[in-house]
Design a protein around this nucleic acid. Structure first.
Length: 835
RNA sequence: GCCGGAGUGGCGGAAUGGCAGACGCGGCGGACUCAAAAUCCGUUGGUCGCAAGGCCGUGUGGGUUCGACUCCCUCCUCCGGCACCA
């Protein structure tokens, strides 16, 4: 073999060979155990970035390990290819989005192939082609049938920059998730929604199954779903005899209610204005509050604002009438849009009532401590009820229970559960997405496109403006259709679907990418699912990872699958950081992977990405760090190449040939080398199964290479036999095959084998070889390290005690003091406690 | 404000109740070379000491333990998520 490491040459050679051998093609095989490794599919933005390299290097290490362990490994990739960036680029360059998208896909596919990831490219899925998106439409129709897709006029989040609606999940700190400096505004629009709220409880319950998901992700999802138990209580508008329902989690405080607050958009407000003695003033006040409430989304601490309506509401518990105020902090879309104000026991109510001089009445006191006479802030904890009529003296917990029951019995309220999560608005006023398969007929109203007419094709040659409404609305040949019910002229829906719909089920499609009679092949899904390991960025913890779980539950309900959770195990990788912030084009701190492939080779880039930090943590990019990775691979290449010629014909002890019975046959140098090799193998094997600290695996591999360098003279002297050396080099190469597969295959060939390392069964480590036969045990006196003694592994505890006390340095520190006890931790240390 | 995660040399990190700093980067010294690159060897937490060796050291303060980077409590800082959710 060549004496010089030439990554370009080697990597091209092996990528071609892997393709010729169809090495990564995975087919359904009921006789073999499967393993499905999934990485989040990329958006084709033009070039892969370091985040991709990291994601796919992690996935590839696992996929290769599982393949070597004998599993039938499915490892697919695809393109999340609908979306705004392509459309915006298209507007700028006056070319169709499809053109950009497919060109970018081609480019990124080449780059990924250059990285040498073990993908089954036959299964590539592209979300922007009709063969895929027709099934988005199919799912939509199924959901429409079941009432899970519905249309309503509502206030929506609108990004003025994207000129489209955003899902709640896409609003970040009051701004657009894509334009972090652009505040989202609210608009009234007719929109399609998917009823994810129907699944809120199941999304929470089924988390029990997600035992191999990061706690962090589950917590974030829990917060997002935001379940809270409480009570709905019906107040009554005294002057108009109208009901006014409030939601509270603290019905125990209701005797301290001194007002009722409603949101500016609450339907009652219009009625109050109509009946008001000063309608104009009230309307002005309400409008002012509306605007301040919208602003509040972007601000952290909004000043409390409000307006007295002049009306009052009767508290059903004590019959007391309290004033109704419009308040800017009350949310229309949560609960009932109205709250009871208990200033003594809710901080917001406290601030509001202090500002507007409304009375404050204490009805909860701490169970043990003395109540405060004057409040400086609300007392919001549970306690004991006072001045609360028949409930006085009860503990909060008990009172909530009793008072809710009484409301139910009295017909003026009930126990209820509220969720923070809202239905998923999927309408987008944009072109580059899945057309929503619905039709509007003047005679029949809204009608779904019949399943047999799918797909509703996204027309080419559309004039893109990026302004206001969907560009499809300006394409008469698209809009004009016939009504599926009456056959008369009708109009098509011109909005397209949120691209997050595309990624809710793409990983099912990989298992049967070509079938055209159904979205998925049941047989294939039965074999391959669940996804054994999903790997991706933490930024998808709530958006994609909730939608995807939701979709699988819908699929179960329509009988497509028989499980509720599609992903058994989730891994969230850290970000790639440079100069203190995430690599991004806007920050100008990106490092281009393809330039590094040319300079160092893909193996080096992968190795560095895995070595620089454990995979779940953020990774600081370092230009000198990658130099180190490159140096290491050069070193490995040289050490193997140096001996390859002599070892080609040597039989190896690793699996092929029976090991000699007694390890006494080894020279001390051989023993040392084999010990290190099998320790590395043990560490990597255990780590791949559980911990995934690839950085330590690679560090161990480096130690093995260091050991080889140290024993170089002994190898030359013949103190280490060729078969021992060969075994060591084989361990080195096979471990490396997980992280730097091209060089590994080249070296494997150099050692006299013909196939790829991926087809080599992962070798079992020999525990006896990995074991130490002599240990250096630290000896502490009163917990302080004072000396070390060398002992045989099988030494008795008594002997350890004797040796430790006999040690000269230890004796000095004992200084004749009385020994209280001696703690011996086998294999670890000795601690002598003295007085 | 609530929830979660993290804090270790000059830097990335290792050690999850038992020798703190593995491995790598960077630094310093040396070999090879006319020279440089590459490569190789040595050294590298702080401090006192000629040395043997001592003392200090994992954000802060306390606790548990023979023994704490690791477990418990307090506080501080940073990162992430949610946020006027009643």
């Amino acid at each position: 073999m060549d004496t010089n490491y030439d990554p370009q040459k080697i990597e091209t050679k092996w990528q071609n060979r892997w393709a010729e051998q169809k090495l990564f093609d995975a087919d359904l095989d009921p006789g073999r155990k499967k393993y499905y490794v999934l990485e989040m599919l990329p958006y084709p933005s033009g070039d892969i970035h370091m985040g991709h390299v990291r994601n796919y290097s992690i996935g590839d290490a696992l996929a290769r390990y599982m393949a070597m362990k004998g599993f039938n490994v499915l490892h697919p990739i695809g393109w999340d290819s609908f979306g705004l960036p392509a459309e915006n680029a298209a507007i700028k360059n006056q070319r169709p989005p499809a053109e950009f998208t497919f060109a970018y896909i081609d480019r990124m596919r080449r780059q990924l192939k250059r990285l040498g990831v073990s993908y089954d490219w036959r299964r590539e899925v592209t979300t922007c082609v009709p063969e895929y998106y027709r099934w988005n439409q199919w799912f939509f129709l199924k959901m429409y049938e079941r009432g899970l897709a519905y249309r309503k006029k509502g206030r929506v989040n609108w990004c003025p920059e994207c000129e489209t609606v955003l899902a709640n999940e896409q609003v970040v700190e009051g701004c657009c998730w894509r334009h972090e400096d652009t505040p989202v505004v609210e608009k009234e629009l007719e929109q399609w929604f998917l009823k994810i709220t129907d699944y809120a409880e199941r999304l929470l319950d089924d988390m029990q199954e997600l035992v191999r998901w990061p706690e962090r992700v589950l917590t974030m999802q829990q917060n997002w779903i935001g379940k809270s138990k409480g009570t709905e209580v019906d107040f009554k508008v005294v002057e108009l005899d109208l009901p006014l329902r409030v939601f509270t989690t603290r019905v125990d405080t209701i005797f301290g209610c001194t007002a009722v607050f409603v949101a500016a958009e609450h339907p009652l407000v219009e009625k109050l204005i109509a009946a008001s003695k000063a309608p104009e003033k009230l309307r002005n006040d309400v409008e002012r509050i509306k605007h301040s409430a919208i602003r509040a989304r972007a601000e952290v601490n909004l000043e409390k604002e409000g307006a007295a309506t002049g009306f009052s509401a009767r508290n059903p518990y004590n019959g007391e009438a309290v004033p109704i105020w419009v308040a800017n902090f009350v949310l229309t879309e949560y609960g009932t849009g109205a709250v009871m104000a208990v200033p003594a026991h809710d901080q917001r109510d406290f601030e509001f009532c202090t500002t507007f001089n409304l009375p404050i009445r204490t009805v909860i006191v701490p169970k043990d401590a003395e109540p405060q006479v004057t409040l400086e802030a609300a007392f919001t904890e549970y306690g004991k009820l006072v001045d609360s009529g028949p409930y006085t003296g009860l503990a909060s917990e008990r009172a909530i229970e009793r008072m809710t029951k009484d409301a139910e019995a009295g017909g003026f309220g009930k126990g209820t559960i509220q969720y923070r999560i809202k239905d998923w608005g999927i309408s987008r006023q944009r072109y580059w997405g899945t057309p929503i398969p619905m039709v509007y007929c003047d005679a029949c109203g809204v009608a779904p496109v019949p399943e047999s007419d799918l797909p509703v094709l996204l027309p080419a040659d559309i004039k893109l403006t990026g302004k206001g409404q969907s560009p499809l609305a300006n394409a008469p040949e698209f809009v004009a259709t016939t009504c599926p019910k009456c056959g008369g002229p009708a109009r098509r829906e011109t909005d397209t679907m949120d691209t997050f719909v595309d990624s809710t089920w793409y990983f099912y499609r990989y298992t049967g990418p070509k079938i055209d009679t159904a979205p998925i092949s049941r047989e294939a899904v039965k074999y391959w699912f669940p996804v054994d390991q999903y790997i991706g960025g933490i930024e998808h913890a709530i958006l994609h990872l909730i939608y995807m779980r939701f979709f699988t539950k819908v699929m179960k309900d329509i009988g497509l699958v028989d499980f509720s959770e599609p992903v058994a195990r989730l891994f969230t990788q850290g970000m790639v950081i440079k100069d203190g912030s995430k690599m991004s084009k806007s920050k100008g701190n990106v490092v281009d992977p393809t330039a590094l492939f040319e300079r160092y080779g893909a193996d080096t880039v992968r190795l560095y990405m895995l070595f620089a930090a454990p995979p779940e943590k953020d990774l600081d990019w370092s230009d000198t760090g990658i130099e180190g990775a490159s140096r290491f691979l050069n070193r490995v290449y040289r050490v193997v190449a140096k001996h390859a010629e002599d070892l080609g014909a040597v039989e190896s002890l690793l699996g092929e040939v029976a090991r000699p019975e007694a390890s006494a046959d080894y020279t001390p140098e051989e023993r040392k080398l084999l010990r290190k090799a099998h320790q590395v193998l043990r560490h990597v094997t255990e780590d791949m199964e559980e911990r995934w600290h690839f950085n330590t695996d690679i560090a161990m591999t480096m130690e093995l290479v260091n050991e080889l360098a140290e024993l170089d003279a002994e190898v030359s002297d013949g103190k280490i036999r060729p078969e021992i050396l060969k075994e060591t080099l084989e361990v080195l190469v096979l471990v490396l095959a997980l992280f730097a597969p091209h060089i590994a295959d080249e070296l494997w060939e150099g050692l006299g084998y013909s196939g790829a390392t991926l087809r080599v069964p992962w070798p079992a480590y020999d525990p006896d070889l990995a074991a130490e036969d002599e240990l250096e045990m630290p000896v502490q006196v009163n917990g302080k390290l004072r000396s070390r003694i060398r002992v045989a592994v099988d030494v008795t505890e008594d002997e350890i005690r004797r040796l430790a006390q006999a040690d000269e340095k230890v004796a000095q520190h004992l200084g004749g003091r009385q020994i209280v006890k001696i703690i011996v931790v086998p294999q670890k240390l000795i601690n002598i406690v003295v007085k």
